[in-house]
Nucleic acid binder design. Structure first.
Lengths: 149, 149
DNA sequence: TATTGTTATACTCTATAACTATA
DNA sequence: TATAGTTATAGAGTATAACAATA
């Protein structure tokens, strides 16, 4: 029986490259004391006044438990502050602290730099095509909450 | 200061899609009692009589410790057998058991199916282009040991 | 009862470092 | 001393499930 090699699967290549890219980014972020998952939360909070943990969980497609743990770490680092939500007492509110708000643009530069390192050699067209393919895959799989802008 | 959204980075899309693809594959493999990392080791061993842990570590770009742990799990599942290497007594030899050898083609079908689910809608040309982009990135970053076939 | 959030637990994946055995 | 391998430890990332508070 003929077994296709690992490299026959596009999923293999994607996983390999994605791991490299994320790992390299993680090393850059580590200098600033945050992880990739934490960066994603910080960036998401930067776009809003405040968000409830459940709203974050929805947007990032993580469980509430996972968000809770990430939030705990970010609060410990004084980058995020917790507050009681208004009205319905079950809701919490997560918002960037001034330190967190100041940090996000710096981390964004690291993200830019990392992307440039791995994808900078591609033409605009190539980048757009890869992005289009990825968006289409997510769309087909009914993945919600990706801002299609 | 304007901060680019997460979606401005190709690395973000890659990570998102790659995680989805790997997770879906992981669910399929879980039915057969193996993980994605274990599958990669099994597939690698399928192409050879036997391999030393250090050879596997080189090919898969993992540490010897990581390989040791994966091998331990695969041995516990009776899919891989350990033997003493010949000559130099420091070397071990890892090889598929008959059960392991029989399982690999079945897992390969799952890999085919998973790839088809996520990438089947792409044209041959699109698939080839994405793969070419990924290979080029790995090449530029001096990543060794990817069989360029 | 249903929902929000936290906490406890667990597992994969991976790394680093200490250690053993062999060379 | 150098190399192959194992083991111990750790931490990120994530999930599920049990639980508390609120509705």
């Amino acid at each position: 029986m003929t077994v296709p090699p690992l490299e026959a699967h596009l999923g293999y290549w994607l996983r390999f490259v994605s791991n490299q890219v994320s790992h390299a980014f993680g090393l850059k972020l580590a200098d600033r004391g945050v992880t990739v998952a934490e960066w994603v939360v910080l960036r998401e909070l930067h776009g809003a006044e405040a968000l409830a943990p459940s709203a974050l969980a929805d947007r990032l497609e993580l469980t509430r438990g996972a968000i809770s743990k990430l939030a705990e770490r970010l609060v410990a680092k004084a980058l995020v502050a917790r507050a009681a939500g208004e009205g319905d007492g079950r809701f919490q509110s997560l918002a960037l602290t001034p330190a967190g708000r100041a940090l996000v643009p710096e981390l964004a530069l690291l993200a830019d730099r990392n992307d440039a390192e791995f994808f900078g050699h591609l033409s605009q067209g190539e980048r757009a095509q890869v992005e289009a393919v990825m968006r289409e895959i997510l769309r087909r799989h009914g993945l919600k909450s990706i801002p299609m802008k």
